[in-house]
Design a protein around this nucleic acid. Structure first.
Lengths: 193, 193
DNA sequence: CCACTTTTTGAGCGATCAGTCAAGAACAAT
DNA sequence: ATTGTTCTTGACTGATCGCTCAAAAAGTGG
């Protein structure tokens, strides 16, 4: 019923996500979003409601992509402490390779919006929890093998790692020296001993 | 010579800084800045040039205030590991007490602007370096007393601490549970053993 | 074919954006 | 008092903001 939509909705959200990621929420205009998504303002508002709703969908899209990618990487990189270390090094090299220096959309959104936007805060917290769970299983694995000290709470160590990871996404914005970044990663991982 | 300025320039910058801190750069309008500073647009532009220049002055103002406050606190709280721990706990309680959840202006600015604004990036990096230096001296003190493992580079540990601190300023934006935050601080400090 | 529904199109809405400017006011130097 | 310089005032600029809407187009059900 009705005229069928001519564009791929998921693809459009993804393009909006990339733009929000590059520029941030406030600095991205609906006009720019429209041309990036290939949509007239009318179509955009008809399909997504308003700028804020579109942003929330973009956040969700980002979370889905990042989480599945992180799961894949953890599965490919083995278990325990090694997987955690490879993950951190991967993030460092990923951020250094990105000429736009976009960092992490969740971290950026937390900094820009979380204090006065409850929806964004909830999404960032959910993403954070997801990440902590991923670390948690790796930590438990490491503790079983003896790579990681068992006397420390895996939950607390996971929170500690997420905190360091979020810090790293900020640090990379101003510090592009790979040696320094890897030293931070190394110091972070030594906290697991 | 000429008509004397009727307002306190430093005070005006400070009020601009508070507004930028609360709202971020893009979300703060020059009109809002003017009324917060008690200035007509003409006076504002005559004294500060444009919005971006005013923001850079506000960043500098923030750095001066925070750095001197941090130095005072470190001096008051003693030396070495204890001073570092008290500093982190202070930051946690400070951020939790702030109903606006502003976090750290340097971290917020890094997330919002550092990727495409070289002036901001330089200011954030300078602030980061200042903070690292503060940690560095405390670490060296701790190493001399034996509180902190001497076999680890004090410089790298300082970078690690700044990274964790920046992460904490993001984490507090979405995680208000003091227990969780203090556990992160505790895990961070155990990395110094 | 004819309703009926939904999407696309692109002009256009009022509001607000960062920034300007002419006029008047307050000082110093002469 | 006059001149020169700077600051204050507040109306004003063109551009852009997020968003709307009427008309046309493209589908489905009868």
């Amino acid at each position: 019923m009705g005229r069928p939509r001519e564009f791929d909705r998921d693809r459009a959200v993804q393009q909006a996500m990339e733009l929000f990621w590059r520029r941030g929420y406030e600095a991205t205009s609906v006009q720019e979003l429209g041309s990036a998504m290939g949509l007239n303002p009318g179509s955009l508002y008809n399909a997504f409601g308003d700028k804020h709703s579109l942003f929330l969908e973009a956040l969700q899209c980002y979370q889905n992509r990042e989480y599945t990618a992180a799961c894949d990487n953890f599965r490919r990189w083995g278990t325990g402490r090694v997987a955690i270390e490879r993950f951190f090094v991967f993030v460092v090299d990923y951020d250094l390779a990105d000429t736009d220096r976009k960092g992490c959309l969740m971290v950026n959104s937390a900094a820009e919006l979380a204090d006065h936007d409850l929806d964004v805060k909830a999404r960032v917290l959910a993403s954070r929890t997801q990440m902590a769970t991923l670390f948690h299983t790796a930590i438990v694995q490491g503790q079983q093998v003896g790579e990681i000290a068992s006397l420390r709470s895996a939950t607390e160590l996971a929170e500690f790692l997420v905190n360091a990871l979020f810090g790293l996404r900020i640090t990379v914005k101003v510090q592009h020296d790979r040696e320094v970044l890897l030293a931070i990663v190394a110091a972070t991982l030594r906290a697991l001993d």
